[in-house]
Every structure is written in C-alpha cells, then in structure tokens.
Design a protein around this nucleic acid. Structure first.
Lengths: 343, 343
DNA sequence: GTTAGCACTCAAAATATTGGAGTGCTAACA
DNA sequence: TGTTAGCACTCCAATATTTTGAGTGCTAAC
C-alpha cells in the first residue's frame, strides 16, 4: 500500500489534533477539520489503511486512533525537513552578559523549561577534556592551601589542600609554586596529567610533597568529584502537567531521575555518540529513548559546541505529544547562539 | 473532663498504631493491643471522650479514629520530655573528614533523607552575617580578574570581575591590591562593608576603579546572587512513599517547592526566629506549619550553631504520621555533632 | 470511489449491591 | 459504679450492573 497525499494529510491531522488534545481522534473529527471534504466513512477507510501500515493505533476497539511511535517519527522527520529550509536569526538576549559558563547554563536551563513547559536538562562540557587555563594556590593557614583552578569557559573550581606539614611554606614559596604549576599544567586537560608530567614537575621543585598533594587534588576535583560532567536541570515538575506521564508511579520515577541526575547523564551521553555532524538535533520518541524510565516520553537533544571546542548537550523531556515544532525551533536557535557566545 | 492515665494509654496506642499503618484505628484493635484488658465497648466509651476532648477524630461516622493535630501535639510533647532526659553520645562518622562546609552539608542532607525516608533540607549559615576570612584576586587576562573569597567555615565563593581597562594592572599591582583588600576587609561580614569602609579603602589606593569594581563584586556575590542563604535538599521523591501526600496535586506542589527552594527558605527562616534557646528542635504539625503547601505534612527542624558562631537549620519534612521518635533522635544527634565539628 | 445507514463494540460514567468494620446505646452484671 | 455483651445502625469501599455515547466495520446504493 502506498502513502499517498491524502493519507498524509489525514495522518498529519490526526497527529496535530492528538498533540493538542491528548485524546484519541475519531473519524468524524477528521472529516470536519482536515479540510478534505470527505465523509467520516471515507476517512474510516483511510484510517483503517493507516492503521494497517502501522502509523496509528487504536487504544481499544471502539476508540479513536492515536499516533504510534512510527507515526510520530514520520511527523517529526517531515518537520525536520521543513525546518532545515527555514533560517531563524532571531536573537534572544540570554547571552548578552556572558561571564561564567556555569551561571549561563543555569539560567539557560531555567528559561528553557519555562518556555517549553517541559522538563529541561543542560550539560556543561566534559571537564575531563576541558583545558586548564589558570591555577592559583594561596596559603589559608599554616596547614591548608586554597586551590583555585579556572578552566576554559571560565569554569572555576576550588578545593582545599591539607598539608602534612613536613614542608614549611611561606608567601614567597607559594608564589613560586604557583608559577611552576601554571607553567607546567596550563593548557592541559585532566586526562593529560600523566605520571610522566608529574615526575617532570617534581623534578623542578624541592616542595615535592606539597606539589604532589596539589596535583592530586586537582585531578580529584576534576575527575571524580564532579562525575565528569556537570548536569543542570529545571522544570522537572512540569511533567505533572501531562496526565499520561503522571499515571501509576511514572511520575515518581521521572522526578527521581531528575533528582539524582545519574540517568540523565546516560541519556545525554548517548545522544553525543549518536550524533553525526549532520544531525545536531535528535528526537527520541518513546521506546527509542535510551532509558526505560522514559519510554513514555519523548526526548529532544541538541549538541552544542562552543567556539573553543567545548561540547555539551541541551535536552528537553516531555510527553510523546510534545510540541515538536516549537521545541525544535527553540533548541536550534539556542544551539546556534551558544556556538557563538563563548568564542 | 480529665485526661487520666488510662485515657493517655489509649490515646498513645491509637497514635502509635496509626503511625504504623496509616489506617483509622477501631476500638477492637485497641482492646487487643493496649495491654489494658478492657473490652472494645469500654474502649469505645473512652474514645468517645477523647474525641470530645479533641485529641482524635473520625474521618466518617462508621470509621475508626485517627489522631487530630492536637493529638499529635500531645504525643510529640510527651516524646520531647522523655527525649530530654536521654543522653545519646553515639557518634556518626559523617564528620571525620570535614573540609569544606558546603560539601559537608551536601552529604549531610543526603544521608538524612536516606536514613529517615522523608524529605530533608539543610541550610548553610547566612552568608550575610558570615565573616570574610581570606580574599584573593588574580589576573586572568588583561581585562579580567578572578575573585576568590573564603568565608568562615571554609565556604569558597568565586566570581570574575571585568575591568573597564582605564587602570592598567600587572602582577605586582594585583599583589598589593590583594594585601590591601585582606587588610581592610578580613573579619568583616557583608553587612559591615559600608560606604564608609569603602571610602577608607579607596583612600589607601590609586586603583580606585578596580577596587570599587572588586568590592562591588564581593557584595553582589554574597548579598544578591545567593539569595542570602544556601539551601540544600534531598529525598524530595520520598514523599511518593506516603499516599496521603500524593493525593490530588499535593505531590506536585511539594515537589515544586523543593525544586525552587524559595518557600523552603521561609520555612527555615521562621524556625530560626521562633527558636528560643530552650527549644532548639521544633515540630510543626499540619496547620502549625508556616506554609500552606505543607498543611498535610509535619515538619521537624533543628537549629545548629557551629563553634564559630555560624548558625543554620536542619529540617525533615514528611507525613503527619512520621516516626517522630526516630527523627527527633537523629536530628538532635546531628545537631550536637555539628556544634562541635567546625570549631 | 464515495457515502449513508446500520449493527456492533467497548470504555467510562453512573448507579446499584453487598460486606464488613466500626459506632452508640441499652441492659445486665460484678 | 464501672465494665461488658449484645444489637441495631451507619457508611465507606469494593464489586457488580446498567447506561451512555463515541467510534468502528461492513454493506448496499449512488
């Protein structure tokens, strides 16, 4: 059977209607709103075809039809095509005063959730591949150093280093340690701080224990503590707006996923791997999603790349009947702006 | 009517039973479990009295009784008395490696939620009254300073200061600025950084614009950005474990309160004002709570005070039928440990 | 190819039925 | 006088039943 023009119109009408109402769509409704001037009986015949082809399903015998995952997929693919032809050069004002990546991402994710009415998640760039821009240690008291590391994107991390006291430090010695650290480590990512590097560093100083403690602290801070990537979320409670997600204990699972953030990391990681350069925006519909908890949701993710090579992901999580058009538009707009913001 | 010993036993039995089961308690149950060896009919008479006195209510004519807010209040007050006589010197290991207050509080709140199975909230000390311990600025590039401020409790805040470029800075100049800042501002809280102070500071330097920008940044950072007090939460999803809180759209409101944290701030602030020194732990039952959203919950808060004068609050939010005994025990234990941890 | 008409289906809403836990009251008992 | 057994009564909650209506597929006519 072929998907002719008329079938496409009917399918699209069903989907659009369902996106709005969330209720199964019957033949009479279509006959009134499709603009095709066909009777409900004719529509019924076509719908029966569409069902056979797998684009729509009946929740039960005497109900209207709702889109299947395949149906959504068709609709979204169609949207994506249309979308590529449009050029949107509208500017949001979000990036006017870009200072630190962290705060920027925080406001970004908040706005995203508010604008879409779905749950939003944004990840910062992977710290492990992000490069050190600047290191500073200072003596807080005789036994403790404050360590401040600034990464690309002006991400600042701090920790304190407790010394065992075998090496006496004073102001000038800390100064020279700072110079040494910056000299050796600037421009490196954590993954590049190898044993060899450390040895090279130690060879140039007599404060071996202190340096060792500091480097250790840096690696810990960037490697383990942060679980690699920082994840910002917002609008988790928006899912309460969509009854189909609140049924049973779905809500509980979803909200809990947002509270712990562990699973979200996977979600986002997956999308970065899938992403060939041609498809910077991805749509996962229902079962397509990498997480079981999200099988009743749709997930739209966009990878962004800052000018300096840092990569991250923006994502929206909502019901299958999400307003794909709007979400795609917003995400692609944000994506292109992010690309330019941090050059 | 008088609340004699027998009535107390019956009331207590009703409450304990209801705490466990969450179901209304009938006269037969009591006659079996109170240990009083009275028939259900006798119990019925007493229950009828207790209801008249306002300690218990009937959800509907032919149901068992459940404790009223007044009933809970009686029970909790009784507990509190008993509690004061006990001395618990059990040590948790949470505070072994206390480094920075922020991370400590984060793990604290997480443990609290996991141990109690309720939602937990912990606030750090008010930054506005917290004192500056150490200031460090460093030149990131020609136009930008990285500002690091360490407060009491080793809370570290950073921000970057963008300079207008009218004053050329170099390494040595930044050094002298640092010394000046530390000299003038250490030991002060934000509230103490007045116009007069600033004037005094400016009089001692020729880099007036830079200093002005830095001080501005410090005040902003500590005053506005953080909304005064930092709030850590955990276990919000635990409320899904208690059906009576999940009914209607209560869950939505509660979770949302936890996501935005605004309301929680009030909750906690209220408890700090109420708190005379004699009652460091407070229990709000149902309507007693300062927030309408929490009218179906009970809230238990404990104020802690670190050795150095910093104050904060630990709180647990759960259903009215929460295990008060356990919660009181845990909170008071934490409270006393906190008091000693950061001396 | 399209459509009106009709019998059929089935979920959801409305309504009825039942069971049982709980009560209050009264009268008898220790 | 306090306690208790017994009984009629209440009413929620669970279950069963009926009703309703939106929707379908099929057939026959246009």
């Amino acid at each position: 059977m072929e998907l002719d023009q008329r079938k496409i119109v009917i399918l699209t009408t069903i989907i659009k209607n369902y996106l709005e109402t969330g209720e199964p769509v019957g033949s009479r409704t279509i006959s009134k709103y499709s603009g095709l001037n066909l009777s409900s009986a004719t529509i019924r015949n076509e719908m029966s075809d569409l069902e056979e082809m797998g684009f729509i399903v009946q929740p039960h015998t005497s109900a209207g039809r709702i889109p299947s995952d395949k149906g959504y997929r068709f609709y979204v693919d169609q949207l994506m095509e249309k979308h590529h032809k449009e050029i949107d050069d509208v500017k949001t004002e979000m990036f006017e005063k870009v200072d630190r990546l962290e705060t920027t991402l925080q406001t970004l994710v908040k706005n995203l959730a508010q604008n879409t009415n779905y749950a939003a998640v944004v990840t910062g760039p992977s710290i492990r591949t992000n490069k050190i821009k600047f290191i500073q240690t200072s003596l807080v008291d005789s036994r403790r150093l404050l360590l401040v590391v600034m990464m690309q994107g002006n991400i600042v991390k701090t920790s304190s280093v407790v010394l065992d006291g075998s090496e006496e430090l004073d102001f000038n010695r800390v100064l020279s340690i700072n110079m040494l650290l910056n000299d050796e480590l600037n421009g490196l990512s954590v993954t590049e701080i190898t044993e060899g590097r450390l040895a090279q560093l130690l060879a140039r100083t007599s404060y071996k224990e202190t340096i060792r403690a500091i480097v250790n602290s840096i690696v810990n801070m960037l490697d383990i503590n942060l679980g690699d990537t920082q994840i910002y979320t917002s609008g988790a409670t928006n899912i309460f707006k969509y009854p189909e997600l609140t049924e049973a204990d779905n809500a509980s699972k979803l909200i809990s996923a947002f509270e712990t953030k562990d699973e979200l990391a996977q979600l986002v990681k997956g999308s970065q791997e899938d992403g060939t350069d041609k498809k910077p925006i991805q749509v996962y519909i229902g079962e397509e999603s990498p997480l079981q908890n999200m099988a009743d949701c749709s997930v739209v993710t966009a990878n962004y790349e800052l000018g300096n090579g840092l990569k991250g992901t923006i994502g929206v999580i909502g019901p299958k009947r999400m307003d794909y058009e709007k979400v795609l538009e917003i995400l692609s707009k944000l994506q292109s702006e992010m690309d330019q913001a941090f050059r």
